[in-house]
């Protein structure tokens, strides 16, 4: 099918991109890698009047991975392939590389970007749960060059809806650095085909003290609701506890209660999603825990 006509803009700078966004208002759409937007347009499900292409902004201004002493900084135009293969991300936020690896296929990962994916905010998108679990922060800029920082938890508002204002552009995702030892994280997902969308995606982040007692345990789920589900009870209940198999079973029960109104669609019924949320949350927790008990940065 032929797409509806649209005006195409290829701004060369971030400020030019945000002023175009402000000028054209709600009919305009930013395109990053286009791996969600173009299929939606080809299917006739989206028909923006203006397309503002971010791929011609001078490459280094939005595609990078950097480190400072507190955090890992990822430019919003960094491709999934780069997130998957970046040595810094692998070392300091393994869960994000692990997540990028599960997105679609090589060609899509070569083109799709982390910023595009989170701004699309598909509830079954893979980055949502892990970014909330690692306490990521999102930086956005507006036409007045004012920078706003939004926590991942507040960023994802609803299905295909983020906290970004109409004239804001996501520039960077920041993840706090954690010590390389006694921290573990994992992302596991339930899908029907390799690289498929998450029917349930479970992210777990665990810290233990030197006696193996839990300092922190976070579980966040994608795919089950219109926005990521933070299982707060796990964070509260497990601090100071020994995370043995009995505790993990208890975590499963907490997840079952937390997922009280799961999505129901052609891929999975609400009941099935809830059951799978329990199964995959437990798997993610077990894996994160095993990693936290191994020392060495590569297991972080």
């Amino acid at each position: 099918m032929m797409n509806k006509p649209f005006d195409y803009f290829a701004p060369k700078s971030i400020s030019e991109a945000v002023s175009l966004l402000k000028k054209h208002g709600s009919g305009a759409k930013l395109i990053a890698g286009g791996q969600s937007l173009v299929p939606l347009m080809n299917l006739g499900l989206a028909a923006p009047r203006q397309i503002i292409d971010l791929t011609h902004i001078k490459k280094d201004s939005l595609s990078y991975v950097k480190l400072d002493k507190d955090s890992l900084m990822i430019g919003s135009m960094t491709t999934h392939s780069a997130v998957e293969n970046s040595p810094q991300i692998r070392r300091h936020c393994r869960i994000l590389s692990e997540t990028a690896m599960t997105i679609a296929d090589v060609q899509v990962r070569n083109r799709g970007t982390i910023g595009g994916s989170v701004c699309h905010a598909d509830p079954a998108g893979d980055y949502l749960a892990p970014l909330v679990a690692v306490d990521a922060e999102f930086r956005a800029i507006n036409p007045k060059r004012k920078v706003r920082t939004i926590s991942a938890d507040k960023f994802f508002v609803d299905i295909f809806t983020t906290a970004l204002k109409r004239d804001e552009l996501l520039t960077e995702i920041r993840v706090p650095k954690r010590p390389s030892t006694r921290n573990g994280s994992a992302y596991v997902k339930h899908k029907y085909v390799e690289g498929g969308f998450a029917i349930v995606g479970a992210a777990a982040v665990v810290s233990v003290n030197k006696d193996g007692i839990c300092d922190r345990a976070k579980v966040v789920l994608s795919g089950v609701s219109t926005r990521p589900v933070r299982v707060d009870m796990i964070e509260k209940e497990f601090r100071g506890e020994n995370l043995d198999e009995r505790a993990i079973e208890e975590a499963g029960r907490i997840v079952r209660e937390a997922v009280h109104d799961p999505l129901s669609d052609i891929h999975a019924s609400a009941d099935y999603r809830r059951e799978m949320a329990v199964v995959f949350a437990k798997r993610a927790l077990r894996l994160a825990l095993a990693r936290s008990r191994k020392t060495g940065a590569q297991h972080n």
Binding site: Y8, G34, V38, L43, H56, V106, Q107, V108, N110, R111
Partner: peptide, 28 residues
């Protein structure tokens, strides 16, 4: 046309991509 099948795979600036999910204008 929806990036599922890969029949349209090409190399763009040295990396494999699916040419059904890019506009020609973007390839400038």
């Amino acid at each position: 046309d929806t990036s599922n099948c890969g029949a349209c795979t090409i190399l763009y600036n040295g990396r494999s991509v699916k040419s059904c999910t890019m506009f020609a204008a973007q390839a400038n």
